[in-house]
Design a protein around this nucleic acid. Sequence first.
DNA 1: TTGAAAGCGCTACCAC
DNA 2: GTGGTAGCGCTTTCAA
Lengths: 318, 318
Amino acid sequence: MKRTTIKDLAQMLNISASTVSRALKDHPDISSSLKLKVKEAAETFNYIPNDFAINFRKNHSKVVGLIVPEISMFFIPSIINGISSVLNKEGYRFFILSSNESYETEKEHIETCINSRVDGILLSMTNETADSSHLNKVKEMKIPVVIFDKTIPQRQFASVVFDNVKNAELCAEKLINYGCRTILGIFGDENLDITQSRLAAFQNTIKKAENIELHTIFCKSTDSVKQQLNEVLKEHNFDGFFAMSDETLMGLHSSLIKKNLNNSGKKVIAISEGTLPKHLDENYEFIINNGFTMGVFAANELMNTIKGESPNTECYYI
Amino acid sequence: MKRTTIKDLAQMLNISASTVSRALKDHPDISSSLKLKVKEAAETFNYIPNDFAINFRKNHSKVVGLIVPEISMFFIPSIINGISSVLNKEGYRFFILSSNESYETEKEHIETCINSRVDGILLSMTNETADSSHLNKVKEMKIPVVIFDKTIPQRQFASVVFDNVKNAELCAEKLINYGCRTILGIFGDENLDITQSRLAAFQNTIKKAENIELHTIFCKSTDSVKQQLNEVLKEHNFDGFFAMSDETLMGLHSSLIKKNLNNSGKKVIAISEGTLPKHLDENYEFIINNGFTMGVFAANELMNTIKGESPNTECYYI
DNA sequence: TTGAAAGCGCTACCAC
DNA sequence: GTGGTAGCGCTTTCAA
């Protein structure tokens, strides 16, 4: 069970530990013949550097904490892929902490990150999170943080979010151009920033066209979409639908199928993460919010500030 | 940037570091008055224990490595949730490493886990992985490993997999009981263990009934299902479908919608992870492979052996 | 070109 | 009850 250490190697070769250390990392001071010998010994005795000791010594962990409001299938896999791709390349690992949409848990996770000495934090907030006071400590400690996707207005940390306004406008325009007259807009949790900005942009664009009747519903889950649609679909005859997310789209799709309303010429436009819904119905149209890209972007931003670039507090729209 | 250490606290209070350490963790030897003083000081000077030093000292990391073949939306989110729920409770973290279906990458990730001194490994194999020789080292080092879901026949480590035989049989029986006569079985990658066992069980059960015409296709992706279905749906008039996974089901669903074949009384039965497809079409039926449960089970098994239970090599079917 | 020694923060053993 | 000390494995001065 005991693993070979530098000291062990040093004893075997009758040289000092510092020399072994240097030889192992190709320090120019060491003669190439010694380097060879040391490396051979390391190989044969299966020497594995102890990352603990190294991190401890260098006072960094090469680990970043990823805190998300929930681990959903719609967004998380692609974001994880995006984050992985940049972090792994840089030799960093990350662990995932899910807040389960609880502010208290989010707070605890922040503490966890501080205690485990992460080099940085990637944070997407719960919908309970109303201010950033729980981040004061990380700010003080100068732990790099970048907030992504679910965020609140703040000027302390860099953030990267989807361009809700542009995307919702694009969707509205599509519906208008198709000549839709009675439109249903399906939105997520009414309390969310993201919902409000998409709602406003969508409504404003629709208003510019004339004679369009716009109905809106707010749903916190896929099932809630289905329930509300059950009623509202009876009362109106929509010729166009807008879903602000994959989650709401799933509910719409389900209801449409159930009422045999698919393939009926009705237009469906959604803001989507993109990996899932393309298989739902080929007639649906999407404005893509790419989670992978967001993950890459957020992780890169974090890497930059970890590596010493002065931390900025900008909000990037992608 | 310098953080308060135990030594700092000791100096301030004019006591020794060891006393501070003990006071902080409520050692019975320490007087309660001193404990109070120490804890107060710790509070006011914002003392945060350095997990690095602790881990380094105790020679454990409280971290486990999770290696998966890919980060897909179908399975991974629920498995992560299952794993989180047990690991977090135990004060463990985990980091996710995706092999991207490459054996070489899987091998590297194993190395990564060894180097970063994880306390255990949770592994789901790529479809390229044919033997477990890359696990010899972890075996030697006595690093606890449990393999889940995607695995190969081996007798070195504990594993937990879905009961493919039972589930495929159940699906076949359902189709038979519905009186289906022309059935299409949609299977995943033909080289996978999981595919073969589901295939065999499904075929055998169907064979027992008489006069059933069974067609099968093998598809490595959702898109491949759609392509193949494009042809095969023209040639035959199926009254029953079996999809062995969420991924294949997505393709089937998409094709059915496109050809306006949903709501046509055809039966669709699938083995599913369960979170996604319930929203696809309420008429579909599922045998649920619960990723959350599997995650919980696998993580528990790992925890047990990390905590010193003698490692077993059993294969659990759930 | 190599070695000796200190020290990262913490805990555990042994004294007293 | 409390303090002193050693040591986990590694890197990094500083000295030779």
